[in-house]
């Protein structure tokens, strides 16, 4: 367990800003305590400072998780955001996509969002912008990347993909052992 290096921080924040923009600083300056990012076995954990210090008691090989896991660095030093980060990303998300109840299931099973399943989309979403996918009753279901701008979506045909799938809450069941 160690703090992130300059390089890692840059990559990580770049990725995070795709979804929540400058709201990253809201994650770091919280009124209810000091929170920090820590790297452990290539995973990035977001954890309160006291908990982090206490977790220092646990040997590296015995520590499985602490606080919330945001994602992991791949072998090629790219950062992959995990579904476990959804709780902290969703409230600060700048661009959102809502899916109809009929398409809910489809997305939760790991498929892209089609135009036919699109309920709403934030105005002026640029192409390839990171978006949070919500159900129509505002339940965050996962996140993806906008395949089209909001304008293009208006006149796309029903089977066109509007958002690429990246991660969804179905992974809690589908790939429980790969979460951390």
């Amino acid at each position: 367990m160690r703090p992130l290096t300059e390089e890692e921080t840059k990559i990580f924040f770049e990725k995070l800003s795709k979804y929540i923009g400058e709201n990253i600083k809201l994650l770091l300056d919280r009124p209810d305590g000091t929170y920090c990012f820590r790297l452990h076995k290539d995973r990035v954990f977001y954890v309160r400072e006291e908990i982090m210090k206490l977790a220092g008691n646990i040997a590296r090989k015995n520590l499985i998780s602490m606080g919330t896991c945001f994602g992991k660095f791949t072998g090629s030093q790219k950062f992959k955001l995990h579904i476990t980060a959804l709780d902290f990303i969703a409230p600060y998300a700048k661009y959102k996509v809502w899916v109809k109840p009929s398409a809910e299931q489809q997305f939760v099973y790991g498929h892209n969002v089609m135009k036919s399943g699109l309920g709403r989309i934030t105005e002026n979403t640029p192409q390839y912008q990171g978006v949070i996918v919500y159900s129509m009753n505002d339940l965050p279901l996962g996140f993806g990347v906008a395949a089209k701008t909001t304008q293009e979506c208006r006149r796309a045909d029903p089977m066109a993909i509007v958002s690429f799938h990246q991660s969804d809450i179905g992974e809690y069941i589908r790939s429980e052992e790969k979460l951390v």
Binding site: N62, M66, T68, D87
Partner: peptide, 12 residues
């Protein structure tokens, strides 16, 4: 993680 719990350290 699913239940949104942040105060837990898991050890083995």
């Amino acid at each position: 993680h699913r239940m949104g719990i942040t105060n837990t350290v898991i050890s083995n």
